[in-house]
């Protein structure tokens, strides 16, 4: 069974968890995702693979506590097991023929951006990372990013780390200062990815986004994860999760993401009461 071998809080709401899953660890590539269930009656939630260790047979996930399932997940301790853990799903991020790249991450999305940035660094590309958080207490993986980046800029919305501003401001500045990127990869909240794409479009820089919509099976069966890319309907689970950001209909994706907002808020509140937490 899918045993938890490590668990470490990265900030007040984001946790890193290392899971025993040798078959998945053997095949996983940056950009792919897994689906998990915490218990026998639980819902299936997709999480992007944050790291993997083929020798140890482990897969790392990084999650933010946003709803009932992530709350239940966070109750589990090292040594306990997940009920279900399936993957690696989706197609791997394209990392060939990239010599110089800007990786732009936002919030917990940085957890997904990291393995891609790392792989590009290992393949010899010049990697610039721009990561953004709401405030300095929420910053995650800063040292990890610094280790694999030729340039690393950490921004906060409120400036509490000394660099106030949005990731798009920092990206624009780099481009304006003459940095020539083959590609920009951006992973984070939909609204952030939308504006990164609007920024890069002005400069004609190819931009890849990683989508994380609502889905059930993750194998192309439900179609719940569909989105419009260049006027065509695509399934994020099998056609993605990476897409050409300049072709994605972000407004539609943002609308679809709120389908169960009311239900999720209610479930979360109920779970908070059950767990005795305050929220």
């Amino acid at each position: 069974m899918y045993k938890i071998v490590e668990k470490e809080p990265l900030n007040s709401t984001v946790t890193r968890m290392v899971i025993e899953a040798p078959f998945i660890a053997k095949k996983a590539e940056p950009g792919q995702f897994i689906i998990l269930r915490v218990n026998a009656d639980g819902e299936r939630i997709p999480l992007t693979i944050a790291d993997f260790d083929r020798d140890k047979g482990t897969v790392t996930i990084i999650y933010q506590i946003v709803g009932k399932t992530t709350m239940l997940l966070d109750q589990l301790k090292v040594g306990e097991s997940l009920h279900d853990f399936v993957g690696p799903l989706g197609t791997a991020s394209e990392t060939d023929n990239i010599k110089k790249i800007a990786v732009v991450g936002g919030g917990v999305g940085c957890a997904i951006a990291f393995p891609i940035a790392k792989k590009l660094h290992e393949k010899g590309a010049e990697v610039h990372t721009i990561v953004g958080f709401r405030n300095t207490d929420l910053i995650i993986l800063e040292d990890d990013f610094k280790k694999i980046s030729d340039k690393c800029i950490v921004m906060t919305d409120d400036g509490s780390n000394g660099h106030k501003g949005l990731v798009t401001d920092a990206l624009k500045e780099l481009i304006e200062s003459g940095e020539k990127y083959d590609e920009v990869i951006t992973i984070g909240p939909l609204i952030m990815m939308k504006f990164v794409c609007l920024t890069t479009k002005q400069y004609g820089i190819k931009t890849v986004v990683s989508m994380n919509p609502i889905m059930i099976d993750g194998t192309g069966m439900c179609g719940g994860c569909r989105l419009t890319v260049g006027g065509e309907t695509k399934f994020a689970c099998v056609d993605g999760p990476d897409f050409d950001g300049h072709l994605v209909d972000f407004d539609e994706a943002m609308a679809r993401g709120t389908t169960y907002k009311e239900f999720e808020t209610r479930e979360r509140e109920e779970e908070c009461h059950l767990l005795g937490g305050a929220n």
Binding site: I216, M221, C222, G223, G224, T228, E252, A255, T259
Partner: peptide
Amino acid sequence: NLKGVYSANE
């Protein structure tokens, strides 16, 4: 792709 459109599978 409006909210409320399902495949029968989903």
